[in-house]
Simulated assay, not measured.
Amino acid sequence: MTGLCDARSAPNEFVEINGRRLAYRSVGEGRPILLCVRFRGNMDSWDPAFLDGLAAEGFRAIVFDYSGLGLSSGVPTYDPSEMVRDPLDLIEALQLKEVVIAGWSLGGLVAQIVVASKPGQVTHAVLIGCGPPGPLVKTAEQLFYDTAGIEVYGLEEEEILFFEPKSARSRAAAQASVARIASRTEARSRPVPIAFARAKLGSGPRNPSFPADHVLEALKTTDLPILHIGGDHDIIFPVENWYALNGQLPTVQLLTYPSAGHGPQHEHPEASAAHIAAFVRSTRSAI
Rank of each mutant, 00 (worst) to 15 (best):
S73R: 00
Q112H: 07
R169N: 09
A174C: 15
A102P: 05
E157L: 10
A176V: 15
V137K: 12
K97W: 01
P165Q: 13
F162T: 03
E82F: 03
S117N: 14
S73A: 01
C130E: 02
Q175E: 15
S105D: 05
I113S: 03
S183T: 05
L90Q: 08
T123G: 14
V137I: 13
L90V: 08
E92H: 13
R184Q: 10
R85H: 04
S72R: 08
L155I: 15
L155V: 13
M83Q: 14
L96H: 09
I181L: 14
L161Q: 09
I128P: 02
L88E: 10
T147E: 00
I128M: 11
S73Y: 03
E164I: 02
V84E: 00
A173V: 04
V110S: 05
A172H: 10
R184I: 04
G154L: 09
T147P: 01
Q121E: 15
F144G: 02
E159C: 13
V126D: 12
Q112M: 13
I160H: 03
T185F: 00
L88S: 04
K118M: 07
I128V: 15
P165M: 13
G131E: 08
Y145P: 04
Y78M: 12
S81M: 00
V178T: 12
G108D: 06
Y78V: 05
I150G: 05
I160W: 05
L127Y: 07
Q142E: 10
A116E: 14
G107A: 07
E158V: 11
G70E: 08
Q175A: 15
A140W: 04
Y78I: 00
Q175V: 10
K97E: 15
V110T: 11
V75G: 02
V137L: 08
S105F: 04
G74L: 04
I128N: 06
I113A: 01
A176N: 06
A102C: 13
T77G: 12
E164R: 12
A179P: 10
A174K: 07
E151L: 07
V110N: 01
A140L: 00
P165T: 14
Y153D: 14
A173T: 06
A179W: 05
I113L: 15
K97N: 15
Y145D: 06
P87F: 01
E164V: 07
A176L: 13
S72N: 10
V137N: 09
G134K: 03
S105T: 08
K138F: 10
R169G: 09
V99I: 02
G70S: 08
L161T: 07
V99E: 06
A148T: 03
R188P: 09
K138M: 13
P87L: 06
A148G: 08
E98Q: 15
S183F: 03
R184W: 06
Y153S: 11
G154D: 10
G103I: 04
T123I: 00
G120T: 12
V137T: 14
I181M: 15
A93D: 10
Q112F: 11
I128T: 08
W104G: 02
A116Q: 09
G120D: 15
A172D: 13
L88D: 02
